[in-house]
Design a protein around this nucleic acid. Structure first.
Length: 521
RNA sequence: AGGGGCGUAGCUCAGUGGUAGAGCAGCGGCCUUUUAAGCCGAAGGUCGUGGGUUCGAUCCCCACCGCCCCUACCA
């Protein structure tokens, strides 16, 4: 074992030996505490010095030493637990020679337990008058600098444990994330949903358009894909009679990494039989308002320099959004009817691109030959997506880009699908589920014919067969938990809401990496 | 993948074409109500890596490695 900084590591090992020489165990097994730091602050935070002196409330407390001031024959330290800290005061003539020798051998980062009573110091800080000290664990490596903490973002991600100790804001983000997940479970359980877990390893990576990770099962000798979505399994469950199901778990997509993308990310997916996409839109308005209220205490949430209002959601069809956010100066906006006409979306996009070229605006670059619906999707993403800052339900997606959604009865070019956008990010995606097995097969085959590595190579016959056994009319949706957490914690990088975000492995690339056999690209 | 930025002590950061600095942490000493404790003393560095220019490079140039941001793919 050899870690930087060697000198401090060795120094602390010597101290640990000295602590053992005093008769303390190096790695004790337990400490029976009576109060947490939070308990002490909550119960005695407002008690004045004379009251404390009269009552001398007894406490046993454990925690990590995060500040340490030794002054000859007495000293102070702060013990931190679960983000809260309490000062302790250690006096040689109270704790005795052995106890004080132990105190002198402590370092920032060590865990100790103390028994004593509460009092206030001259300067008024609520503190524990230590009567007995218990050694609990040595930090052989030092903590980050006590005032600035850990500022290097790379170190914060790689050594998250240090970030959690020294950056209170970071702790809170992950506590909030846990509360968000709890609220979501409460919301769905209150509506009669049951939570399930479906496979993460799929023989066919379906349910979304994305490049999958491939792995291999030795005994079966088959390749498997880490799931890109749980969708097709959850819908098998609605066939099976689970009329209201949800799953909160990871998806894996072998694509770019950015402030909004991590290769593994957490989705809530839920399916509700006998409902359609309009029902889900209504449900979402309640859901987002309720979660925001529970987490932020208001439906209005500060995100950067804007205030997001989850109390109401604008609803726009995709074509309406294109018309609404058509840039000024790019000529007359197309009408919804023009966009709906054959070739209309392409003509509008070309018109937009002429303007974009001349004005150095974002260009709508089409890859290959696009169908009408793909043009519509492309144009929307180019001119409107990042304008959708306030929570917006965008609905009626083209059929060509929605292979799992049910078509609108009055217009088969469109599906009953919506997405929720907030702060320019896609947060949710839901639709009336396509449950016609023949139509589903036709769409899958069309996808496969089109090709590309974001699309399965083979038909998911098992899924079609499940549909053929009869799936009730169902609406389903996925919500990105990481992005939702970003919104509710004012975080602007997905890495700040994922405990251990994906980074390049440390050290030399050729050493011991899993994918070495693949060689250089 | 393309563009921009960053990389100096364990941590947070200064700095200069002439052999490297502070604060915190650590070490020795003093200090029994401090709180970014204080005071005295000593220590700590292949200035990301490898080339090049130069009498001389941490600094200038090139390549590579890593991280961050933007763009592209995507949720």
């Amino acid at each position: 074992m050899k870690f930087e900084p060697h000198d401090q590591f060795e120094q602390r090992q010597k101290k640990l030996e000295a602590i053992q020489a005093l008769g303390f165990e190096a790695f004790p097994r337990e400490f029976r505490w009576t109060h947490t730091a939070a308990d002490i602050v909550r119960e005695y935070g407002n008690m004045a010095a004379p009251e404390l002196d009269a009552a001398k409330p007894g406490v046993s407390l454990a925690g990590r030493i995060v500040s340490y001031r030794l002054m000859g024959k007495a000293g102070f330290a702060h013990l931190q637990g679960a983000g809260k800290r309490v000062q302790v005061y250690v006096k040689k003539d109270v704790v005795g020679d052995r106890g004080f020798q132990l105190f002198q051998l402590l370092d920032l980062g060590d865990h100790i337990g103390i028994r004593g009573h509460l009092f206030r110091t001259k300067t008024g800080e609520l503190s524990v008058w230590v009567e007995e000290l218990f050694f609990l664990s040595k930090a052989l490596l030092p903590l980050p600098e006590k005032w600035h903490g850990l500022a290097d973002v790379e170190l914060r991600y790689r050594m998250r444990y240090l970030d959690l100790i020294s950056t209170e804001k970071s702790r809170q983000v992950f506590e909030t994330r846990a509360r968000i997940v709890r609220e979501l479970r409460k919301f769905f359980e209150a509506r009669g949903y049951i939570e399930v877990e479906t496979p993460m390893m799929h023989p066919i990576a379906g349910g979304a358009t994305a490049r999958p990770f491939v792995t291999h099962h030795n005994t079966l000798d088959i390749n498997l894909f880490l799931r890109i979505a749980p969708e097709l399994y959850l819908k098998r469950l609605t066939v099976g009679g689970f009329d209201r199901v949800f799953e909160i778990n990871r998806n894996f997509r072998n694509e770019g990494i950015s402030t909004q993308h991590n290769p593994e990310f957490t989705m809530l997916e839920f399916y509700e039989a006998y409902s359609n996409y309009r029902d889900l839109m209504d449900l979402n308005e309640q859901l987002f308002a309720q979660v925001a209220q529970a987490i932020a205490g208001s439906t209005k949430v500060k995100y950067g320099d804007v205030e997001l209002d989850f109390g109401k959601m604008e609803r726009l069809s995709m074509r309406e959004a294109i018309v609404k956010y058509w840039p000024e100066g790019a000529g007359t906006p197309p009408t919804v009817q023009e966009l709906a006409a054959p070739g209309g979306a392409q003509r509008a996009t070309e018109r937009y691109n002429q303007w974009a070229k001349a004005n150095h605006a974002e260009y709508a670059a089409a890859k290959g030959n696009l169908a009408d619906g793909e043009w519509t999707g492309l144009l929307f993403e180019t001119i409107a997506e990042d304008k959708l800052v306030q929570p917006t339900i965008l609905y009626d997606f083209p059929t060509e880009i929605s292979p799992l959604s049910k078509q609108k009865p009055e217009d088969p070019a469109l599906t009953e699908r919506f997405e929720i956008y907030v702060a320019g990010m896609e947060i949710a995606n839901g639709f009336s589920e396509l449950n016609d097995p023949a139509e589903q097969e036709r769409r899958f085959l069309a996808q496969i014919a089109r090709g590309g590595d974001e699309v399965p190579k083979q038909l998911d016959v098992d899924y079609i067969r499940a549909l053929a056994h009869g799936m009730p009319p169902t609406a389903g949706e996925g919500i990105g938990i990481d992005r939702l957490t970003m919104l509710l914690t004012d975080s602007h990088s997905i890495r700040d809401v994922i405990l251990f975000p994906q980074l390049r492995p440390e050290g030399k690339p050729e050493e011991g990496q899993a994918g070495q056999a693949a060689g250089k690209a």
